[in-house]
């Protein structure tokens, strides 16, 4: 129904730009044929179960070849468009996930890689195959330069109070912290995006 309305609009628009001379009759006839073929197409599709009838172009061989190349080029363009769209889509998801993971306590820097399930075509997209989250719990270089004086103080205090056993404890605490963060990241991402937490892989650096 929607298509019919658009076809009618299209033909009125074409009717407006038609020349007003003896040629008008001819152009009008062809326009009528065009409307007929566009309206007949869906009806025929009902009978032939989705088979689109081919345009007979037996009279001009050169024009058929150009039409075919144009169609092939359009297919190629659609494929590139769709793959670009999917790429953009995964990049956007990565950005959103990055912002979400940064909200988790203790996460300083994060890198997210999303792998999509299915082919490069839009119709074959089945969802997200896997997510790799690379978490950095320490400040990056340029950030650390501004708070460098703090670091030696912290390490120093640890050495004083704990010693060798203390180092093991801190490792255990760090592991515990990493586990907590992994849990939180998985929870947040699976809740926000409605995905299985099993496909999320968290790596600490």
């Amino acid at each position: 129904m929607r298509n019919v309305v658009i076809i009618v609009l299209l033909t009125t628009f074409i009717d407006l730009i038609m020349p007003s001379s003896s040629m008008q009759r001819f152009v009008k006839v062809v326009m009528g044929l065009f409307i007929l073929v566009t309206l007949l197409n869906p009806i025929l599709n009902l009978f032939t179960k989705g088979q689109d009838f081919e345009v007979m172009t037996w009279q001009l061989k050169t024009s058929t070849s150009t039409a075919n190349t144009v169609l092939a080029q359009s297919d190629k363009l659609t494929a590139t468009n769709q793959s670009l769209f999917l790429e953009n889509y995964s990049r956007r998801i990565e950005g959103q996930m990055k912002a979400l993971v940064k909200l988790v306590k203790g996460v300083k820097e994060v890198e997210v890689q999303v792998e999509l399930k299915g082919g490069k075509q839009l119709g074959t997209l089945e969802g997200i195959a896997s997510i790799l989250v690379m978490v950095d719990t320490q400040e990056t270089e340029d950030k650390s330069s501004s708070i460098k004086p703090v670091e030696p103080v912290r390490i120093h205090s640890k050495e004083r109070t704990a010693g060798n056993e203390g180092a093991k404890d801190t490792q255990a605490v760090l592991d515990e912290e990493h586990k907590r963060m992994e849990r939180e990241i998985k929870n947040t991402l699976s809740n926000y995006f409605g995905i299985n937490p099993k496909i999320i892989k968290v790596v600490f650096s």
Partner: peptide
């Protein structure tokens, strides 16, 4: 020239009508 260009459309209509 207009009629030559319109031929594919005419043939397409004919084909569809004949199939019906």
């Amino acid at each position: 020239l207009v009629m030559v260009l319109a031929l594919p459309i005419i043939v397409a209509i004919l084909e569809s009508v004949l199939r019906l």
